[in-house]
Design a binder for these strands. Structure first.
Length: 597
RNA sequence: CGGGGAGUGGCUCAGCCUGGUAGAGCACCUGGUUCGGGACCAGGGGGUCGGAGGUUCGAAUCCUCUCUCCCCGACCA
């Protein structure tokens, strides 16, 4: 049994000014963590205890489908060289040299290492499938650590990797993870959603994120309350209302119109008396193409054309052209790739490459412009626009692709669904995706199939952010006084608060109760500090323990109070009934969270 | 990296503009009175004002450089 009087739980009455989001403030105030540097935190007793509970759940569930490994955190250069990610990872990778000058890095993920093991050891289809996982510290030199434990440079991740003989096998491994992840997050008491996601720089096909809605989150999720469609806005699609086309003028072919001072979409719309949806907007980018082995990285001009009322989705654009990075064009680059001044750029008459990221300009046109007519576009000439512009007839492109952001209120993309999308902020707690052959291929993993033919195993990769589970749980359950965690991941399930330790009856009742609760298998903290009752109540409310037993004056007549933090409710219970009462409380609440999820 | 803000006892901050012996509340230590929602009284300890350089008789305060942290934009668990 833990006695508060002997523990180091440095609670803070006020949160440091640095802390902005709720979980950050409360982790600090509750004495769970202390900051050491930007994105680097010490985990103290309560914090580590909660994280250990989360890890326990993750391990228990993962053990149902996978084998636990433990790989090094410090890694040699070679495997990363082989996969192409030594350069591909860029500045996010912490790099160091050993005394001999050899390159090393701190592990930010372990595809390469797991694949190297597979390559060295797996020989036959009979050994597949394999799913290997680890729970381990990751290091990433984030450009901008923030929000306490939400975005840090050192964190704990459960990462697993599957190796299958074929796509059907990968589907199965993926589905196994999907099911296990749902159990894990449910057991951790999180209200989560699984959403379609972009596969990003890791490469691969199907990709699914597990998100918890919170304003502290960094991702935007579009979802349909009607049919359950949910996707990261990096990937989300929607159906657009048909646009009423403008009437053509003259012979219906592009006509040059003097439009002085109409550099902005709003000006153009006002000038022509049209909706911005009938204007074509141009956004010019420079896109980074990663050089293959032996080649250098290079930057290429990209012009994105879309409806005037739409925003470019840079993730989608990067995916469409195959860029590793994107930045907006600077002054001289505009002149190099395009003919007109900013504000009057248009697609008509623009020369473009046939393939993306060549020597010339890559022109990408958003799908929403397909089939449109009588549009207004910049004329690539100061103070002039063209009207009666029709995509396909008046200009062509390198790529026609979905490169826009969906907006709240647009129609759900699901066939037959009449819902409209809502957009909300969320934090990513897990991610599963089908890697495909990227690593097994580049690193030369091969096994023999039943016909004795050499085949490349297909891989999946699956992550869970341990600290993020804690953070998300706090974000979803807090008030002005502190937060409460589900019993499954709280550092303690119940705190027995002896309101006055000077009173021998109270002290003894508290001791006895705590011992009984512990004997019943509950994680008990006995608050035996020589503090005023108010101080202990405040601390108890702050530190995330879901249940509290107040041992006070009524103890003399054999009664104590059982307080449920989440509901701020208190009931009097006879001392001899406390254990059964608390146990059933814990069980009921666990069921409730499971249903909510 | 670009833009904005902040570094003054453990925490929250004042002082800086207009240089002149470093402050408050909370926390901590001692004694006493208290004891169910962050008590009260009395006494006490603790700060080279992020660092370096400069201006000045004199710098927390003015100037230059630098480090660190936070927030807003490009990455991800």
């Amino acid at each position: 049994m833990h006695r508060w009087s002997k523990l180091f739980v440095p609670t803070l009455r006020e949160a440091p000014a640095d802390a902005e989001v709720a979980s950050h403030k409360f982790l600090l105030r509750a004495g769970y963590i202390r900051q050491l540097g930007a994105g680097i935190y010490n985990y103290l007793f309560l914090g580590q205890r909660s994280l250990n509970k989360i890890i326990g759940i993750v391990r228990e569930e993962m053990d149902q489908i996978a084998q636990e490994f433990y790989l090094p955190g410090i890694l040699p250069r070679e495997p990363w060289e082989q996969s192409g990610r030594w350069t591909g990872m860029g500045d996010n990778m912490f790099r160091l040299k050993d005394r001999k000058g050899a390159d090393l890095c701190l592990g930010m993920t372990h595809e390469e290492i797991m694949t190297a093991i597979a390559r060295n050891e797996l020989r036959s289809y009979k050994q597949l499938p394999q799913i290997w996982y680890q729970i381990q510290t990751k290091y990433r030199d984030e450009p901008r650590p923030k929000s306490g434990l939400l975005r840090v440079r050192q964190f704990t991740m459960k990462d697993s990797y599957s190796f299958d003989i074929d796509k059907a096998g990968l589907d199965k491994s993926f589905d196994l993870h999907d099911a296990v992840y749902r159990r894990i997050f449910t057991r951790c008491g999180l209200k989560f959603v699984a959403v379609e996601a972009d596969s990003g720089a890791m490469g691969g096909s199907q990709s699914q994120e597990f998100m918890v809605y919170t304003d502290a989150g960094e991702d935007l999720i579009a979802s349909c309350p009607k049919c359950g469609y949910a996707a990261n806005t990096e990937k989300a699609i929607s159906r657009l209302e048909p646009v009423t086309e403008m009437e053509p003028t003259g012979d219906g072919t592009p006509e040059l119109v003097h439009t002085p001072g109409c550099a902005a979409i709003a000006d153009v719309a006002a000038f022509f008396q049209i909706s911005p949806a009938s204007d074509i907007k141009c956004v010019a980018y420079m896109a980074l193409k990663r050089g293959a082995a032996g080649e250098k990285d290079s930057w290429h001009g990209v012009a994105a054309f879309l409806r005037g009322d739409h925003q470019v989705n840079e993730t989608k654009l990067m995916g469409a052209v195959g860029a590793a990075e994107l930045r907006t064009m600077q002054g001289e680059e505009l002149a190099q790739y395009l003919d007109g001044p900013a504000g009057y750029l248009g697609p008509v008459g623009l020369k473009h490459d046939a393939k993306p990221l060549g020597d010339g300009l890559t022109v990408v046109v958003d799908l929403s412009l397909q089939g449109r007519r009588n549009l207004v576009a910049g004329a690539n000439k100061a103070d002039y626009h063209l009207r009666n512009v029709a995509p396909g007839r008046d200009f062509t492109w390198t790529l026609l692709a979905d490169i826009r952001c969906v907006n709240e209120g647009e129609a759900c993309p699901t066939d037959g669904c009449a819902g409209t999308l809502v957009v909300g902020k969320a934090v990513e707690v897990g991610h599963i995706f089908k890697l495909g052959y990227k690593y097994s291929e580049s690193m030369g993993a091969r096994v023999l199939d039943p016909n004795g033919k050499e085949v490349t195993p297909i891989m999946g990769s699956y992550g869970i952010g341990i600290e993020r589970i804690l953070t998300a749980a706090i974000e979803q359950s807090n008030d002005t006084n502190g937060f409460w965690l589900p019993a499954s991941i709280a550092p303690f399930t119940v705190v027995v608060t002896v309101t006055n330790v000077a009173d021998a009856t109270l002290r003894e009742t508290g001791e006895k109760l705590a011992a009984e609760l512990e004997a019943a298998g509950l994680d008990v903290l006995l608050d035996d500090r020589d503090e005023r009752a108010g101080v202990k109540f405040k601390d108890a409310d702050l530190v995330g323990i879901p249940y509290r037993i107040n041992v006070g004056k009524k103890a003399a007549s054999g009664v104590v109070e059982v307080v449920t933090r989440s509901r701020a409710s208190s009931v009097d219970v006879a001392v001899h009934d406390v254990v059964t009462h608390v146990k059933s409380r814990v069980e009921e609440d666990a069921l409730l969270t499971a249903v909510d999820a």
